[in-house]
Design a protein around this nucleic acid. Sequence first.
RNA 1: GCCAACGUAGCUCAACCGGUAGAGCGGCGCAUUCGUAAUGCGUAGGUUGAGGGUUCGAGUCCCUCCGUUGGCUCCA
Length: 637
Amino acid sequence: MKVIFPDGSEKNYNEPITPGQIAKEISEGLYRNAVGAIVNDELWDLERPIDFDCRLKIITKKDKESPEFYRHTMAHIMAQAVMRIYGEDNVRLGIGPTIENGFYYDFEILNGTINESDLENIEKEMKKIIKENLQIERFELSKEEAIKFMKEKGQIYKVELIEEIEDEKVSFYKQGEFIDLCRGPHLPRTGLIKHFKLLSVSGAYWRGSEKNPMLQRIYGTAFATKDELEEYLKMIEEAKKRDHRKLGPKLGLFFINTDVAAGMPIFLPKGSIILNELMQFSRGLHKQYGYLEVMTPLVMNVKLWHQSGHWDHYKENMYFTEKENVEYAIKPMNCPGHILIYKNSVVSYRDLPIRMFEFGKVHRYERSGVLHGLLRVRAFTQDDAHIFCRQDQIEEEVTSVVRLIDELYKPFGFTYRATLSTMPEDHMGDEETWDKATEALRKVLEDIGLDFDVAEGEGAFYGPKVDFHVRDSLGREWQCATIQLDFQMPERFDLTYVDKNGKEVRPVMIHTAKYGSLERFFGILIEHFAGAFPLWISPVQVIILPVSDKYVEYAEKIFNTLTQNGLRVQVDKRNETLGYKIREAQINKIPYMIIVGEKEEMEKTISVRNREGKEFKGISIENFIDELKKEIKERRY
RNA sequence: GCCAACGUAGCUCAACCGGUAGAGCGGCGCAUUCGUAAUGCGUAGGUUGAGGGUUCGAGUCCCUCCGUUGGCUCCA
């Protein structure tokens, strides 16, 4: 049989051969570093024989596919350790896949629970298993045999999994006394991966459904090298330090009173400044792109929500209230309000597109367990827009939205990624319309040259959508902006416009939010900048620190000048040492400190220290103001 | 909602086997009048998340509830 290598070269073999043997042939070094192979696009164990013509690539620890191998194996090592500790008969295995940055395994422990303090013990046992350097062997059973085998072991979840596998044969992996149903791939021996850490335990429903029993999930991470592991753990530490739930209250931006308003953040003056700057920026861009700002009521008759379909599809997430025997709903979305505005007048084809936007405060009930600082709340503000347009305008409109989003994200230094979500199983409208809409979205993304993934079947029930995921300074991704095509609402509300021929035609609705939720975006910004915001959104842009009481008067003069120039300034008049005031300003991440003492007062200058610690002495106030104005105008970060 | 852990001063944390709550920072007061990340001294601050139980005695043990954290589900 013939084996083709990535560089195009070929080699013939008469007997079945393993990728490992081939690697060894090429070089000892390659073999030592190999974790597995890719055979005809399939991840393949290093010691699994090949007996057919194929393309082959040896995967070493450096290849991006390698985590699939060693993290999978790590999950098995963990399961083996858990079984050794709790007893094979007391542990039922769920699933144990690899995930981004790590792996997990779900267990049911029949006679107890696993808690965080047990992790150390499990890690210890895992290290033992690694040291034992057990051979990992793959073998296949027929479905029948496999079910019988797992039934005997009492592994009811595995039996369930096997029953659903379509192939006649299923693969197993064996390392020492541990045998598990698994598609693979795996390392050849347990000793080949050492750098791991167990991170947390949590509950997880079997197959993600609340109707099923809850299993215990252990999360862990593993990397090819010690450095990579340490870097990742450091990143987690850094993320903890930047946690907006800590930084926000500390910097006086917001707090959440969980007692009276769980999930509904209260914004302090400084936080409100930032939100207002964000809104102003977004508002300006929307205006530039031809949107009209509107405002709609928070509380509206439930009738409206019956018509919109929210009553049927979204009731569980809504708040209700009642007066004079009339039931009202607090709005969870802004679209019905905007539709009322559309219907308020007769629309001609010449009027389209109509672009409406609103900083709409919406309330959505979320179960208490899912609330998370500003990132997951019950009350939030969307920079929500709806475009009503003709079918033939979809492409142009979507393009313009994508441009707007790009401009909006630019001054934060985010890179982002788009996903195109296609028709879900449960959908409304005919497939042809769906295809057309989906293709329109795809074409726009391609024309603009934006990288995107396709999420099959992930669209909203009324139309396909494009979501934007921003990547923050720690490499984490957050879903923010969204563009959704909707053919359903115009139908339900009988929206029309009059075309060239005087006929009534159905418009298309495009739902779009750019920041998504202002609260969430704010939370992301806090973590992205670790509280050191760009000048243009900093609540306090400059703090003036007189060296002692004697120079307060001069400080106040400067304060007045800066304030008159539209800067947000404070004077620290407290009777404290300069070092103390600098330290405090530094902790508060204030972009610029102005230090004034005898020298400055005499020379009519200022000394400036930025939050990076750089000092500039003998600066003229005018120059300083000009520089700051420029920095603000350019929205530098 | 479910699983697990946690809840002590504004913040960070301490208090042994159950013996009657303590420190730093911050606040306030006084002194100091200061040159680029913490001046010194003094002082106030607590129904130990809430309620119930066991006990001579509960921050500590048990139960219920509330909340937080990490997840599951859903989503901006």
